[in-house]
Write a protein that binds this DNA or RNA. Sequence first.
DNA 1: AAGTCTATATATAAGGC
DNA 2: TGCCTTATATATAGACT
Lengths: 127, 127
Amino acid sequence: MGRAKLPVKRIENTTNRQVTFSKRRNGLIKKAYELSVLCDIDIALIMFSPSGRLSHFSSKISDFQNKESLLRILHERRTDNDLELQHAAKYEPDPQEFTSMEELEQCENHLLDTLKRVLERKEIKES
Amino acid sequence: MGRAKLPVKRIENTTNRQVTFSKRRNGLIKKAYELSVLCDIDIALIMFSPSGRLSHFSSKISDFQNKESLLRILHERRTDNDLELQHAAKYEPDPQEFTSMEELEQCENHLLDTLKRVLERKEIKES
DNA sequence: AAGTCTATATATAAGGC
DNA sequence: TGCCTTATATATAGACT
């Protein structure tokens, strides 16, 4: 879009690729945010930027009844804290990339939330 | 967009909400696909539709060197197969919702992939 | 629930700061 | 790198099927 039509293929120029990433990442997050609000759904969006850093967006997750199996599993791996599932990740009006450990943990938490839901869904199907 | 400007708030009419979800979900997946190709990055997009079903998109994940910790962890939970990380999830030109166990497992796999990368990143920061 | 149409709202490629 | 501007490309709301 814009002044010229851009073919959907890898942008070879590094600078242009970074610029396009920044612009489109923001657009994508905005769209995801709107969809989550308009349709009242949960969305998780995870991206690894060209420079290797992690960006994410996740709409609010409202309800958690039983934080069992997956959390126990995680605790086997990480004994330093038990904050899992506490932060209901929310939309960041000013999207940014992760640079701090705290941010990484928030993303991890949301991934675990989502994974947990997938596993629960599987269990429903299996039973 | 379209004929009228839609305020970003929950669409109360169930039918309209479903229709908007279908349309915007496709748009969002297309945007995510384009971003992944243009900028050569990995993206995972997970949504729970208003009806509670799961939709997802994930760009290809190309490299996996050591599938250790998280996979061992998963195996404690699921002993029925060890297909994790095998399917490099790809763009689905005809986006669809998950209804089968196989699709759920693909999504689970991708979530585990992403989670694994987040954990690895944390380890790098911690060390 | 899923596709078509089309007027209008948005997103964004280039370019400039 | 990030923030404007603006011409153009896309996305999509509403109506209809």
